[in-house]
Amino acid sequence: MTHTDTSDRVKKVVAQVLKMEETEIKEDANFIFDLGADSMQSLQLVAAFEEEFDIEMEQDKALEVQSIKEAVTFIESYLS
């Protein structure tokens, strides 16, 4: 899977969880500061990423991930 594929899938998941258009989500967007995710949605994002990529992430570290860019890098570390 290419970096762009991962990025697109991350954006798709984020758009679904936060109920917004994929086009509104920029690569460096912060889940909380730019996209308005609350604490419940942050947990939902972790769960949705795990399902989308069929991985099991370490929750504490996953919750420290704050932006689309960081999420892509973090998920890729599980995929490699």
């Binding site: 912060n30 909380i32 500061f33 604490s39 420290e64 704050q66």
Partner: peptide
């Protein structure tokens, strides 16, 4: 905002 992004 939550503490993690207050600096922003």
């Amino acid at each position: 905002f939550p503490g993690a992004v207050c600096h922003m």
